[in-house]
Structure formats: C-alpha cells, structure tokens
C-alpha cells in the first residue's frame, strides 16, 4: 500500500489547564480519499485538527504521538513544508481572512511560499475560480456574505496547493443554498479531504468514509452509510441524525 497522505499514531494531548482532550488517536487517510471526522461537541475534533499542521503538538510539550504527512513527520524543523501540505479551513472565516482585499488574502499564503508577479496572480486566479469568487477579487472580505467569506477561506487554502484539505465544520452557519454551493465546490476538487463535522447528511453527501472521534479516541471507522446506519453506535456517541433523514435511502 502507498504511503498514506495522513498517518497519525498514538496521539495524546492535554490542554494547558490539565484537561486531557486526546487519548491516543490513530488515523490513516490515503490519497484521493474524502473522509468525514464525526464527533459530538467537545470530542476534541478541533484540537485534533490543530495537530495536523503542527500548531499544537510536539513543540507544546503537552502530549505525545506521531503524525506524518505523505511520509514527512510533523516536527519543528519540518513545519514550513507541513503547513504547505496541510491546508486547514478554520471554522470561522473571520479568523482566516485578515487582508484588505480578497485578492490579497488569497495571495498571502503563496506569497509566503515565495511566489511573485505573474506566477502569484495565476495561483490566486485559479484558486478564486475554483470557488466561484473571481468577480469579488478586489472586494474587502468583510463586505461579503458569510457563505462567500467561507468560500474565500477555502480559496486561501487551495492557493497553497495542499496535499490534504482539512475543513473544520464547513457547513456551520450556512444557509441551505450556500451549504449546497459549498458542497458542489468540494465535490469538484481533486484533492484529499478530511472534513470535520457534526452535519451528518453533509458527511454522507461528500465522504465515502467516516470515522467517529469520541472521548479522545477513534471509536468507529467505516463506510459513511454503514456508520450512520448503526443506531446503537451513533447513540452511544451523542450523534443524532436530523429529523426525517434516513441514511439508507439515496438522497
């Protein structure tokens, strides 16, 4: 089998106040997969995500374990390349967008990689096109709607040409139309995706495989449809399907 894009082994972590969030997480994601990471509020999903690009982890000395991205271990000396390979779209687009215009914001990452001039413009144009925001390039991000801001946030990460795209609660706070538009964008992308969510229909729509993070460990791993259909498993980990939603039925 090929080297997994994402290889996590025995990851533990405790918050600075002493509360332990991760109790030994193991997860492998292979090239081209779209995996949903499901879990109730407070399961440690966002904490886990912050380990993937080394924001939390070895340097913060509050946990152990090993993470490799396409064979490269996440360490202090590899952080720059790791952060290019792992593109995280944070839950709140306002945390992600801080430059005066959409174009500048999308250019921020590639410019840090050293791109300039025509090459940079090409990257920015390509990323904006993939999320359908080309027409908004010169607008200030805070003048856009929430859904548009989230799409720009996705573009800022795509412009880095990551090997794995990590989406933290991509559908949260979106109206149904924006939610559907974002799903169409993600479905079109030719990139490995790890989607952290408790929006179960969204997971079923976009990801063939799902894992459940609960109590700081992975407690289930399988085809999304099978995981969602296991009522006992779902109930044990506070995961509930929306009223009237039946995972066995094609949507």
């Amino acid at each position: 089998m090929s080297t997994p894009v994402l290889d996590v082994r025995g990851l533990t972590y405790a918050y600075p106040d002493g509360t332990q969030a991760l109790w030994g997480v193991d997860l492998h994601v292979h090239r081209g997969e779209r995996v949903a990471l499901l879990g109730p509020n407070g399961a440690g999903k966002t904490t886990f995500v912050l380990h993937l690009n080394g924001v939390l982890g070895p340097s913060s000395a509050q946990g152990e374990g090993r993470i490799e991205i396409s064979g490269m271990p996440v360490r202090r000396d590899t952080l720059a390349e790791i952060r290019r390979r792992v593109g995280i779209v944070f839950q709140d687009p306002d945390d992600q967008l801080f430059m005066p215009t959409v174009r500048d914001d999308v250019a921020f990452g590639p410019a840090n990689l050293g791109l300039r001039g025509a090459q940079l413009d090409e990257r920015v144009g390509e990323a904006l096109e993939r999320v359908g925001m080309t027409a908004y390039a010169s607008r200030p991000p805070h003048h856009l709607s929430f859904g548009q801001r989230r799409r720009v946030a996705v573009a800022t990460v795509l412009a880095m040409r990551p090997e794995i795209l990590v989406l933290d609660e991509p559908s949260s706070n979106l109206d149904p139309a924006s939610r559907r538009e974002l799903a169409e964008i993600v479905a079109e992308l030719d990139v490995t995706v790890l989607m952290v969510t408790h929006d179960l229909p969204y997971a079923l729509q976009l990801c063939e495989r799902s894992v459940i993070l609960s109590g700081g460990v992975i407690v289930a791993d399988g085809p999304t449809r099978a995981v969602l259909a296991d009522g006992e498993l779902m109930a044990a980990h506070r995961l509930e399907l929306p009223f009237g939603f039946d995972p066995a039925r094609r949507h």
């Binding site: 912050l50 690009n53 924001v55 720059a80 952060r83 290019r84 792992v86 593109g87 995280i88 944070f90 709140d92 945390d95 992600q96 801080f98 500048d104 250019a107 921020f108 990452g109 410019a111 840090n112 990689l113 940079l120 800022t156 990460v157 880095m160």
Partner: peptide, 22 residues
C-alpha cells in the same frame, strides 16, 4: 484567544513573522 486563532490561520499559510509586501 481570538487573536491566537487569527495567528494560527496565518501560520497555517506559511507566515514567518513578516507580511509579504505584495
């Protein structure tokens, strides 16, 4: 914590301490 999240998002896109002059 708010500023930290912004900073994390910047780090995640390769920020190294100085804003690139575009």
């Amino acid at each position: 914590e708010r500023g930290e999240r912004v900073h994390l998002a910047m780090l995640s896109r390769g920020y190294t301490g100085s804003l690139p002059t575009l």
